[in-house]
Simulated assay, not measured.
Amino acid sequence: MLRQLDLLTEHINRIGLFRRDVTRPEVELLLACQLPEPLQTTHNKLLALLLESLSAARFITPKWQRVAGAKGCFLSKLGKPLTAKDLSAAKQMADIIDAKREQQILDCIRALEAAQS
Rank of each mutant, 00 (worst) to 15 (best):
L75P: 00
R3A: 12
Q65L: 05
A114F: 13
A94Y: 03
L8E: 10
S117D: 12
G69L: 01
E113K: 15
L106M: 10
R14Q: 11
L8R: 07
D21C: 10
L30T: 02
I96E: 15
L78N: 02
P25V: 03
D107E: 15
P38I: 06
E102Q: 09
I105K: 01
C33Q: 04
R19E: 15
A99T: 12
R110M: 12
K77I: 01
P38F: 08
A114N: 14
F59E: 08
T9W: 12
P81E: 00
E37I: 04
L54N: 07
L50D: 12
A48D: 08
L2G: 13
A84P: 00
L49V: 10
C73D: 09
P81R: 07
D86M: 05
A114H: 11
T9L: 06
K100T: 08
A84W: 00
E102Y: 01
Q104Y: 12
A111V: 10
M93R: 15
N44D: 15
E26F: 00
L87M: 00
F74H: 01
R24S: 09
N13K: 11
E28D: 12
A57P: 07
L5V: 07
M93H: 14
R58A: 14
I97C: 08
L17D: 05
K80V: 02
Q40A: 13
L46Q: 13
Q103Y: 11
A70V: 05
L5R: 05
R110L: 15
A114W: 12
K80Y: 02
G72V: 03
A48M: 11
G16K: 05
Q103H: 12
A94H: 02
S53W: 10
K100G: 02
L31D: 03
L2K: 13
T61P: 07
T61F: 05
F59T: 07
F59R: 11
K80D: 11
D86K: 01
L8F: 09
Q103N: 10
K45S: 13
L17V: 10
L75Y: 00
A48Y: 04
Q103W: 04
G16I: 06
A114M: 12
G69T: 02
T83P: 04
F59K: 06
K71W: 00
L31R: 06
F59L: 12
G16E: 06
P81F: 00
A94C: 08
L31W: 04
T9D: 08
A111F: 05
C73R: 01
L35Y: 01
Q92D: 13
L49N: 12
S55C: 09
Q34R: 15
L78A: 10
L51K: 09
M1C: 08
G16D: 04
K63W: 13
E26L: 03
T23W: 02
N44V: 07
L78H: 07
R20G: 14
K91A: 14
G69H: 01
S55P: 11
L7K: 06
V22K: 06
K71E: 02
I15N: 01
G69K: 00
T23V: 07
I15D: 03
T9H: 06
S53L: 09
R101C: 09
Q65V: 03
L17K: 04
E37Y: 05
T23N: 03
T23P: 07
Q65I: 02
R20E: 13
L49R: 14
C108V: 09
A32E: 15
Q34P: 00
L7Y: 07
